[in-house]
């Protein structure tokens, strides 16, 4: 009897509970709980113990000093600004390169479009680390690419400014360049998705009403692709701002980005509260606005 009751319960509710419950519990334990721990550590005091933090002493419950340091210490403020600047420039450049590429993709024949789309997606599947590494080879002092740039520079500028090689590595320029390279597909794909959806008849309607191609682009194509621009921008900006691999390999060590700082505070300085506080600040600054935006965006879409 009880077996029958169980199977009835399972058919109606139990199986649904299992399907929702398993991933729910997993994410709560392995994603949400760790984050709560980080959040609480960010409000603790750094001590020379193991693990290197404790609650108590001067600030028994909450010690906000890590957050105060983020706001006042120029090291952290500069790191945030550098991160935001590099990620912002990278996102903007990705847009400038990616938009015409995505638009071009919608204008070629179907066969070529499939080939080109595959070429855009292919880097996704190849190692991120190796794509960064590929640029290290190109930017190095003795590389053919650097040699090419050096020759071009020396031809263009007066003799006095001539250089032996272009100092590309270990600079913000290198960081932005590699970011654009590695994140460009993240910009092209959402842009392509939103451009491809547009009805070409609307272009014709605008032309029919007296718009030249450039005006058609400004009045019809561009405004309708704004969701794609925002999606692509966020997909580039957010991971770029928290990037650790790129600044470590090609960046300027004296101008660290946030990701590097979190890792250093945690590893070398063994200051867990500080590392946690920077992580929380990064999250509040970037991830929360994104999630709110996409939440309201989904709501607005739903009401249409």
């Amino acid at each position: 009897m009880s077996a029958g009751r169980f199977s009835r319960w399972f058919d109606r509710k139990g199986w649904a509970g299992l399907i929702i419950g398993a991933p729910y519990v997993w994410l709560l334990v392995f994603f949400f709980l760790p984050f709560l721990i980080v959040l609480s550590i960010s409000l603790s005091t750094n001590t020379p113990t193991a693990p290197p933090f404790s609650f108590g002493g001067e600030h028994p419950v909450i010690n906000p000093s890590a957050y105060v340091r983020i706001l006042t210490d120029s090291l952290y403020v500069r790191a945030f600004l550098t991160s935001l600047f590099n990620a912002g420039v990278a996102a903007l450049l990705c847009l400038l390169v990616g938009y015409p590429m995505a638009l071009g993709l919608t204008r070629v024949s179907t066969t070529w479009r499939n080939v080109f789309l595959m070429l855009v997606i292919l880097p996704f599947w190849t190692s991120f680390l190796l794509r960064v590494y590929a640029w290290m080879g190109l930017m190095g002092k003795n590389s053919w690419f650097n040699g090419l740039l050096t020759d071009a520079w020396n031809i263009l500028v007066p003799m006095d400014w001539a250089v032996k090689s272009v100092p590309m590595m270990h600079s913000n320029f290198a960081v932005v360049l590699v970011m654009v390279y590695t994140y460009l597909p993240f910009m092209i794909l959402p842009l392509y998705a939103s451009l491809e959806r547009l009805d070409p008849v609307l272009d014709e309607a605008a032309m029919d009403l007296g718009s030249r191609p450039a005006q058609v682009f400004r009045d019809v194509t561009l405004p309708q692709s704004v969701p794609g621009i925002i999606a692509g921008g966020m997909l580039v900006f957010i991971p770029a701002a928290g990037e650790l691999v790129i600044p470590t390999l090609v960046g300027n060590a004296s101008q660290p980005m946030i990701g590097r700082l979190i890792s250093d505070e945690f590893g070398q300085a063994r200051d867990w509260p500080m590392a946690s506080a920077i992580a929380v600040a990064l999250l509040v600054l970037m991830v929360v606005p994104t999630m709110l935006y996409s939440h309201f965006q989904a709501k607005a879409e739903g009401s249409k």
Partner: peptide
């Protein structure tokens, strides 16, 4: 003469109303 310079206008089958 390109479409934008013709004094001829069209009512499209799908109406082609600009959604934005």
């Amino acid at each position: 003469v390109p479409p934008w310079e013709r004094p001829i206008h069209m009512m499209f089958q799908s109406y082609a109303i600009f959604p934005h």
